Simulated scan of single mutants.
Amino acid sequence: MKAHGKAPVRVASLAELKLLRQTLAAQEARQVAELAARRQAERRSQAEKNLFSKAVGAVTPLPDGRRARLAREQPAPIPVQRQLDEQRVLREAISDEFDVSTLLDTDDALSFRRPGIGTDVTARLRRGDWSIQRQIDLHGLRRDEAREALAAFIREAHRQGLRCVRVVHGKGLGSPGRTPVLKSMVQGWLIQKNEVLAFVQARPAEGGAGALVVLLKPSLP
Score class of each variant (00 low, 15 high):
179 T>Y: 14
18 K>P: 00
57 G>Q: 02
178 R>T: 12
193 K>F: 08
59 V>A: 01
137 D>V: 03
44 R>H: 08
75 P>Y: 12
46 Q>I: 11
82 R>I: 03
138 L>Y: 02
131 S>W: 10
98 F>Q: 04
187 Q>H: 04
206 E>N: 12
120 D>V: 02
20 L>I: 09
107 D>P: 00
67 R>V: 12
193 K>Y: 04
42 E>L: 13
184 S>W: 11
5 G>M: 05
127 R>C: 01
163 R>D: 00
65 G>R: 14
6 K>S: 14
173 L>H: 15
24 L>G: 03
87 Q>W: 13
28 E>P: 01
130 W>F: 12
110 L>H: 09
177 G>K: 10
157 A>Q: 11
64 D>H: 09
16 E>N: 07
13 S>A: 15
151 A>N: 01
141 L>P: 01
198 A>E: 10
43 R>H: 06
94 I>E: 00
180 P>V: 03
33 A>P: 01
28 E>L: 14
113 R>L: 08
163 R>Q: 07
53 S>I: 04
107 D>L: 09
198 A>V: 09
69 R>W: 09
75 P>R: 12
75 P>F: 12
49 K>S: 10
186 V>W: 02
52 F>G: 05
176 P>H: 05
172 G>R: 03
133 Q>A: 13
79 P>W: 02
84 L>K: 06
187 Q>M: 14
67 R>E: 03
156 E>T: 12
